[in-house]
Design a protein around this nucleic acid. Structure first.
Lengths: 223, 223
DNA sequence: ATCAACGATATTGTCAACAATCTCGTCAGC
DNA sequence: GCTGACGAGATTGTTGACAATATCGTTGAT
């Protein structure tokens, strides 16, 4: 047997713990307001306390958790207005990413996008909102990564964490599912045509509509 | 004598140390590549090691410093291409901020902007690029804060730190100084006219031009 | 003179013990 | 029953000692 197939339980590093927590916040395993007790995280990850504390501080810097003196960390909750602000920032940054993507897109990228688009179409046919949500995320990521702007990609990733759950929510509305997919198709056409400004406008409108739908669906959850 | 007039030398907190370092990076007191030795910062700030380490980790999360294992923290240096990406992100976010500002601006805000504009004009007359740079920063901050979007304001603040010095550099070119001021005047007119889309376009062009000038001036500093 | 090996010193990484504060159940008094 | 004081336990904050690694001058061989 190859040495190393039996993973030695190396204690996780600070950033790894941050990822661990981040993912649980994204997926709703940790909900807004929930307290994050150091000992619990230590037990579940096998990390040392220093590392856990480091990770929590890091997440505080990202605005994901709140730390009160002697009261510890808890998952920060967003108001509807803050979600709106996040969407506004997404419109700006993803719009710009789309602009640059369109200006740079080569046939290989477009082919990947086309492939993804076919799968998205299939999801609409099959009424598979969950799968659509995952592929939709991949679609957006492809645009952002393909824009060649790592700074924008990084800031967008941070913006997306607190609203990760919401990014799936709206696709359970079938009307929205169809509209969103039509948006994607239209954007693909604009990319192929090399219309960077048009593609940017379309992306901004697409994200703006996403928020409108969301605000209708979720308004009851916020004060 | 009032108690407290003699400040008790309370040891600085983590975020305060981060600010301290951040400012020195901004103002060029710490230059890219320079190593940040924990003991030195302890001596200069009076903080404990834990706090200093916390602050450095925080700054690493912001992308301002680089931490290598057992080698410590050093000020991260940006390539010209990364500066370009930052400017691209600024165009997107400040453009959006300008859009929202124009849509929300009330007479009081416009009056403050007008006042700032007069001072900027005076700087152009007096050929005071340094003062112009400071007021220019204030002008941009007024727009961003006035947009009512704290998320965008926060991300812009982070984007600006690594390029803080550069934000002043281009105004020593007199041609650029005049152009930038004319841009400001034109934007003010668009704000007053309530043309949000036009103001946004103007802001993006303004920032884009700023980078062009910069790239010409500074290209020698980058590989 | 050049270079590699070595070792003293400097610097960072980790951990565990202790201190400070909060939380929450309990109970006396009304 | 209600309220507020009290205290044990839980949780977080801080510090200092020690381990691991890097840095840099020295030395000796070629």
């Amino acid at each position: 047997m190859q040495a190393g197939s039996q993973e030695p339980p190396r204690p996780p590093t600070g950033p790894e713990i941050a990822d661990w927590v981040r993912q649980r916040i994204r997926t709703g395993r940790f909900v807004p307001g929930q307290r994050l007790v150091e000992v619990d995280i230590i037990r579940q990850t096998g990390a040392s306390r220093s590392k856990v504390r480091e990770a929590l501080k890091r997440l505080e810097g990202e605005g994901l958790v709140e730390i009160e003196e002697f009261r510890g960390a808890s998952v920060r909750s967003s108001t509807l207005d803050e979600v709106r602000q996040i969407y506004r920032a997404r419109m700006a940054l993803e719009g710009m990413a789309m602009h640059d993507f369109t200006a740079r897109a080569d046939p290989a990228m477009i082919a990947r996008l086309q492939d993804l688009q076919d799968q998205l179409d299939a999801c609409v046919q099959d009424r598979a909102p969950d799968r659509f949500g995952r592929l939709n995320n991949e679609w957006h990521r492809l645009i952002v990564e393909g824009s060649g702007n790592k700074v924008i990609a990084d800031h967008l990733q941070r913006l997306n964490v607190p609203i990760h759950r919401l990014l799936f929510e709206s696709f359970y509305d079938e009307e929205r599912l169809k509209t969103a997919n039509a948006d994607h198709r239209a954007m693909l056409a604009l990319i192929v045509a090399g219309d960077a400004d048009g593609a940017e406008r379309a992306m901004r409108a697409h994200i703006g509509d996403g928020f409108e739908t969301l605000a209708r669906i979720e308004s009851e959850f916020y004060s």
